[in-house]
Computed example of a mutant assay.
Amino acid sequence: MLHHATLSTDHGSDLSGADNRDLSFDFAKGILIILVIVGHLLQYVVYRGNGYWDSPYFKSIYMFHMPLFMAISGYLSSRALLRKSFARSVNERAIQLLLPTLFWYALLETAKVAVFLPSSSIVDVDVLNDLVGSYWFIWATFASFLVVKVLVTIFRRSSMWIVCMSAIAVAVLPVTFSIVPLIRYTYPFFCLGFLLSQSAECRTRVLPRKKPLLMFSLAAITCACFLAWSKETYVYNNLALIHDTASAGRVVLMYAGSAAASWIAFEIIVQLWKFSSSNRMARFVAMELGQSTLLLYLLQGTIFRLMDLIQFGDLWNLSTRISVAGMLGASIVVIAMTIRFIVRDLRWSSRIIVGTLPRSEAVKA
């Protein structure tokens, strides 16, 4: 899946001007964060209610976008996992991911109290769900990084085999509390990305020779899983929990479909980048959106969580909903890019709000 490019930079580092940065990964992340926003627009605006579970567009996105995001994160985290000390790598990752998450969570709660909740009423705010559920992918990424780092630190030479076994163990772990099912679903893909970053011989010798047959097989698996995919195949509904033959089939279908679709999607994205890398729009996706995925994810997560408190669109026709979704999606991107432009040279603001080093420090790094 990730054999096209060599590991060039740590995930989330803001080295947009560095010569060794592989922009194909940034382009992939840019495409994926767009799909995250589109998926939420389908859920919150286009389909009000539960109709989105049966949407072929929703299904097409949700089969692969978060698993592929996690695989890329695991791949690009290889340097921090292998070359940095435990304390340094975990500290850097916590500052990068959790500090901005806490900032946007505080903004979310402030907006709920000041704007959406009547000042005279006492409301039981689900604080934990807001903090964890709204930004679950950030917590899943940090948890995956932490677990793999612990395994690599303890087992060292045999750590690759241990990481591989941990992916299987976590996937079948019968725990359904809070966002644990989402972590169990995405953790194996983080491990897959990390393991592929270490499999140089497989990427450079084996895969190119077997690529046509591999791509055909994966495409066939993806199509078959797409046709068999249903509401109960989503991790949000099956919780990745196996308790009988039927549930085992759904969980296997979910993992197989997500893995195959992620691989095919990455191949398509990489080829698209090869043909359009000189295009202005493609470079905007890579250098602006792809290097602002944390900010975009946190911003859209905050906005869509607030939309849970708004009743709207019940009487709108489909064309109106699509128009509103398009304007909202564009607004999210514009707001995020404006925030990034404003804080990119402000040391602590850049760290806290965007999760990146200021531009001057990033160039030095």
Results as ranks from 00 to 15, higher is better:
residue 1 M to A: 09
residue 1 M to K: 08
residue 3 H to E: 11
residue 8 S to F: 00
residue 10 D to G: 04
residue 12 G to E: 03
residue 17 G to S: 01
residue 19 D to R: 07
residue 22 D to P: 00
residue 24 S to I: 02
residue 25 F to Y: 05
residue 25 F to P: 04
residue 26 D to A: 02
residue 27 F to A: 12
residue 29 K to T: 04
residue 30 G to T: 00
residue 31 I to V: 15
residue 31 I to F: 12
residue 40 H to W: 04
residue 40 H to T: 10
residue 42 L to P: 01
residue 47 Y to S: 02
residue 47 Y to Q: 04
residue 48 R to I: 11
residue 48 R to T: 11
residue 49 G to R: 02
residue 50 N to M: 14
residue 52 Y to W: 14
residue 52 Y to A: 07
residue 53 W to M: 09
residue 54 D to I: 10
residue 59 K to M: 07
residue 61 I to M: 03
residue 66 M to P: 06
residue 73 S to H: 05
residue 74 G to E: 07
residue 74 G to C: 07
residue 79 R to L: 08
residue 85 S to I: 13
residue 85 S to P: 07
residue 87 A to C: 12
residue 100 P to E: 12
residue 101 T to C: 14
residue 101 T to E: 03
residue 108 L to G: 05
residue 109 E to R: 06
residue 114 A to V: 14
residue 121 S to R: 13
residue 124 D to T: 10
residue 125 V to E: 12
residue 132 V to S: 03
residue 133 G to H: 09
residue 134 S to K: 01
residue 135 Y to A: 11
residue 135 Y to W: 07
residue 141 T to L: 09
residue 142 F to T: 06
residue 144 S to E: 00
residue 146 L to Y: 12
residue 150 V to K: 03
residue 150 V to T: 00
residue 151 L to C: 12
residue 156 R to E: 13
residue 156 R to N: 02
residue 160 M to A: 15
residue 161 W to F: 12
residue 162 I to A: 03
residue 163 V to H: 07
residue 164 C to R: 13
residue 166 S to Y: 00
residue 167 A to N: 08
residue 167 A to E: 01
residue 168 I to V: 14
residue 168 I to M: 14
residue 170 V to Y: 14
residue 173 L to Q: 09
residue 174 P to D: 11
residue 180 V to H: 02
residue 180 V to K: 10
residue 183 I to K: 15
residue 191 C to E: 04
residue 197 S to I: 15
residue 198 Q to W: 11
residue 198 Q to R: 13
residue 201 E to I: 13
residue 206 V to T: 14
residue 212 P to D: 11
residue 216 F to C: 10
residue 216 F to L: 14
residue 222 T to D: 08
residue 223 C to S: 09
residue 226 F to H: 08
residue 228 A to H: 07
residue 232 E to A: 03
residue 241 L to R: 02
residue 247 S to D: 01
residue 249 G to C: 03
residue 251 V to P: 07
residue 255 Y to M: 08
residue 266 F to L: 15
residue 268 I to N: 06
residue 273 W to M: 05
residue 280 R to V: 12
residue 284 F to H: 10
residue 285 V to F: 00
residue 290 G to I: 13
residue 296 L to I: 07
residue 301 G to R: 06
residue 302 T to Y: 04
residue 303 I to W: 10
residue 306 L to Y: 05
residue 310 I to P: 02
residue 319 S to P: 00
residue 319 S to A: 05
residue 323 S to K: 07
residue 325 A to H: 01
residue 329 G to V: 04
residue 330 A to K: 04
residue 333 V to L: 11
residue 335 I to P: 07
residue 339 I to F: 03
residue 339 I to M: 09
residue 342 I to D: 04
residue 346 L to N: 02
residue 348 W to M: 11
residue 349 S to T: 06
residue 352 I to E: 01
residue 353 I to M: 03
residue 353 I to Q: 02
residue 356 T to M: 05
residue 358 P to C: 11
residue 360 S to L: 09
residue 365 A to C: 06
